[in-house]
Computed example of a mutant assay.
Amino acid sequence: MDKLLVATTNRGKLREFRQLLSQMGIQVLSLDDMPEKIDVEEDRETFLENALKKAKTYGDFYKIPVIAEDAGLEVEALDNYPGVYSARFYSIPYGGVEQVDGDKDSANIKKLLRLLKGKENRRARFVSVVVFYYPDDFGLWTEGYCYGQIIDEPRGDKGFGYDPVFVPEGYDKTMAELEPEEKNRISHRGKAVRKLISLLSKIYSTPKSNNITR
């Protein structure tokens, strides 16, 4: 395997994947690099189902190994919302639709902070489910979590998504204030990808079987 596709157009997410996968010595492509474009709707009810759908659809279409992820923020006081709706939280009925004045990340954060106003329980966690799919051969998946708290105002400009309002356990900085190496060490995505790399290393050193495993 000399190259694989990371099924995303999100530049922040792609940057993190490339940093995490750099040790594998393979070319990491994004959906923007593919000559023919297809859309895959993330319409499933769980992170795993969404990631599986994306990995298999893109892998079968492009005939290339694929890594697909679905990730999001679960907030305890909001019934674990935004969850699988994290990227489009601003637009769903739960808690009311938030107008997009600038970018969608800002609208998502604005809605989140509005719904949490006055609530003492600020516990939350980031979730990442990563699926690797080798067309007509095998697949596997891993998961990672990062626990922390939601603060009242955004801080930092080094992350994306909800990073500016999420402070990981044991830290006084938000995810968006951490250097990339430190964030990757503790993040949900970093944990899931390191598990994936470990599994791939074992699989490529032993005979493969036709299955999807965790």
Rank of each mutant, 00 (worst) to 15 (best):
L5H: 00
R11M: 07
G12H: 14
K13R: 11
L14G: 05
L14D: 11
F17N: 00
F17H: 00
L20S: 06
S22F: 08
I26T: 10
Q27E: 15
S30R: 02
D32G: 05
M34G: 05
M34S: 06
I38V: 15
E41V: 14
D43M: 03
E49I: 00
L52V: 15
T57S: 13
I64W: 01
P65K: 06
I67W: 01
I67T: 07
G72I: 10
L73G: 03
E76C: 01
E76S: 02
L78E: 11
P82N: 07
P82T: 15
Y85T: 10
Y85C: 04
S86L: 07
R88C: 09
F89C: 08
Y90N: 10
G96S: 12
Q99P: 01
D101A: 08
K104N: 13
L112Y: 07
L115S: 00
N121G: 09
F132G: 09
F132S: 10
F132W: 12
Y133R: 04
Y134C: 03
D136P: 00
L140C: 10
W141R: 03
T142R: 02
E143Q: 15
G144T: 14
G144D: 13
Y145C: 01
C146I: 04
C146D: 05
G148F: 01
G148P: 00
I151W: 06
D152Q: 09
D152L: 07
D152V: 04
R155L: 06
K158Q: 14
K158R: 15
G161H: 13
Y162E: 09
D163W: 04
F166H: 12
E169Q: 11
G170I: 10
T174M: 02
M175R: 03
A176Q: 05
E177R: 03
L178K: 09
P180W: 02
P180Y: 05
R185H: 12
R185W: 05
R185K: 14
I186E: 10
I186C: 04
I186D: 09
S187P: 02
R189V: 14
R189A: 12
G190C: 11
K191C: 06
A192T: 12
I197W: 02
L199K: 15
K202I: 15
K202Y: 13
T206Q: 14
